[in-house]
Simulated assay, not measured.
Amino acid sequence: MELTKEHLERIKDSLPVERGNVSIDVLSFLNGVLYVAENGCKWRRLPERFGNWHTIYTRMNRWSKSGVWDRVFERLQKEGLVHLELKVVSLDSTSVKVHPDGTGAGEKNGPQAIGKSRGGRNTKIHLAAANDVHALGFRLSPGQNGDGPEGRELIGELGCPRHGCALAMDMAYEGNETRGLACLLGFKPVVPPNPLRRKPWKLNKALYRQRNHVERLFRRIKGFRRVFTRYDKLDVLFRSFVSFALSWLLLNSANRS
């Protein structure tokens, strides 16, 4: 994997201008971040060809705290939506194991969506997808949080969809509150009913099969070791790696068509 000048040209307007004596150019910096994201290595293990590891880490940390990676993702997302005929949105979550290096920060340092479940310490990524490369939005939560409440927060952030857009979800989202909010926003919920319901509804299986888009998107971003395992103590840095991975997919989506 490598970011090219063509990639940089598409996102440069969303990147801050580095002032002063800048020892590492933007493209080398971005490729250093890509190397860490893909391989999951420690910052100090960055190959020397990218430049000083501490300089790259410091800039990554600064850009994360100022929301640069979220802005890049949002820009590419809006560009992609222009060319999409959005008929089905798929919603789901995935659990990410937290490495011991990702624990131990004090609460005063910032939000840390890290919880405990039967599998140990983990973080959940809740994500809404238009297809297997195009995410519409995501949020983080501690691993023990339920999918229903977090899913409602996410679809609330998405806002009103285009007319007639279906929302494909698994049974974790089949509660009345989640389906009611989806309808209120203009979605057509496509979710299997709980077998214990007295009046189950008929499931549109053709639309429900498209829920695999979000599963395939999770598989793609978990190809980045820094997303597959959480090594970062604070949400602000882990979230940036998720945004970075999603942005990489959007940057390269044109090459897949």
Score class of each variant (00 low, 15 high):
Tyr35His: 15
His163Pro: 11
Glu150His: 04
Leu91Lys: 09
Lys222Met: 13
His213Arg: 11
Ile24Gln: 06
Tyr57Asn: 08
Gln210Leu: 14
Gln77Asn: 14
Val96Glu: 02
Ile221Tyr: 00
Pro195Asp: 10
Leu196Met: 06
Gly148Glu: 03
Ile155Glu: 01
Arg62Met: 12
Ala168Asn: 03
Arg198Phe: 09
Leu207Asn: 08
Lys199Gln: 07
Asp25Gln: 08
Arg225Val: 09
Asp101Asn: 08
Leu246Val: 12
Lys222Trp: 09
Phe241Thr: 04
Ser90His: 09
Asn39Glu: 12
His134Pro: 00
Gly51His: 10
Leu46Val: 11
Gly223Lys: 05
Glu79Leu: 03
Ser253His: 11
Glu6Lys: 15
Ile221Leu: 03
Ile24Pro: 06
Asn212Glu: 14
Lys108Ile: 12
Pro193Ile: 02
Val17Arg: 10
Ala245Phe: 03
Glu79Cys: 03
Cys41Ser: 12
Leu34Ala: 12
Tyr208Ala: 06
Glu79Asp: 14
Ser117Met: 09
Arg152Leu: 13
Asn194Val: 02
Lys222Ala: 07
Leu249His: 01
Arg225Ile: 12
Trp69Arg: 04
Thr103Cys: 07
Leu46Gln: 14
Ser117His: 05
Arg10Val: 15
Trp43Ala: 02
Asn204His: 00
Trp53Leu: 09
Val133Asn: 04
Leu27His: 00
Leu34Arg: 06
Glu150Ser: 06
Arg10His: 14
Ser28Gly: 10
Leu250Asp: 00
Arg239Lys: 15
Ala105Thr: 10
Val68Ser: 06
Asp132Glu: 15
Glu18Gln: 11
Val68Tyr: 04
Leu84Lys: 03
Pro47Arg: 05
Ser14Pro: 13
Phe244Ala: 06
Asn255Gly: 12
His54Met: 11
Leu217Tyr: 00
Val98Phe: 11
Lys116Val: 11
Ser95Val: 09
Phe241Trp: 03
Tyr231Ala: 04
His54Ala: 12
Arg219Ile: 03
Ile125Val: 15
Asn21Leu: 13
Pro149Met: 10
Gly120Glu: 14
Arg118Glu: 04
Glu107Ala: 13
Arg139Ala: 09
Val22Lys: 02
Gly80Arg: 00
Trp43Gly: 01
Trp69Asn: 03
Asn131Glu: 08
Asn204Met: 00
Arg71Asp: 05
Arg71Leu: 12
Asp25Ala: 02
Leu86Phe: 11
Leu158Asn: 00
Gly106Asp: 10
Ala206Asn: 04
Glu18Cys: 08
Cys41Thr: 14
Pro16Asp: 10
Val242Ala: 07
Leu136Lys: 04
Pro149Phe: 06
Gly110Glu: 07
Lys87Ser: 05
Arg198Ala: 13
Arg220Glu: 01
Asn194Gly: 04
Arg219Met: 06
